[in-house]
Amino acid sequence: MSIDWITVAAQIANFLVLVLLLRRFLYRPILDGIDAREAEITNRMQEAVRAREKAQAAEQEHLDQVRALHAQQADIAETVRKQAEAQRDALLAETHKRLEQERIDWLAHLDEEKHKYAARLQRAGGGALLSLTRKALKDLADDTLEGRIAQHLARRIKPMAGDLRDAAGKGTEAVITSREALPEAARTDLLRSLHEVFPAVSVRFDTNAEQSPGLLLRIGGAQLDWTVDGYIDSLGDVMDAQLTAGVDLKGART
């Protein structure tokens, strides 16, 4: 066992060189690599934390937006519901109004039709009544309706002379209008009666197919209706009453 001091010195030098070599090729690369990797891991973890925070913020924002959308959706639904209700009410009101109007129109139309029918019925009834009357007078008394009316009017002129004069004023012509031409005897009776009351008045006989059966006397401003209009109107009133009663009965049944 001996110590070679030259070898000792060489070994010290070798060891120092080895320290430098390993520091250069082993420790520094390894430790720097570890440090760099730890820094990289730290950076990535920080990035992950930031990404997670960003994701959480995005999630929170998304949830807020969803909540806002839900609230907005509820508002919109409420608004739409109210609008629908208002529109429904408006449509119902309009429909009710239209139905009411249609009902009023229908009632008016019905009333008009009723009046038209009553008028037609009145005319037909009046015509039938007059025909029957004429036929009865012709068959039973060999007389005409207009002739009997003229004779009766001739008898009634004298009692009404005062009123006729006042109404006639200074009229110089009397016009007697009938639906059909009057019989000669009736004309004579009327002329005699009128000349007794109005001697200076000329008399003219005229016919009007549109006129109701009877006579129409016009002298100046005076006019005397001596027709069956009032009776026909009475017949119309009776028919109206009967129709109304029939409608009411129908309505009561329904």
Binding site: D4, Q11, N14, L21, L22, P29, I30, G33, A39, E40
Partner: peptide, 25 residues
Amino acid sequence: TIFYTWVVMALLTVTSHLITRRLRA
């Protein structure tokens, strides 16, 4: 002694250098 010390030194250095020459983080 010196020769085999060099061998050990070379072995350690070359091995370390071969492994650590292309390190990337």
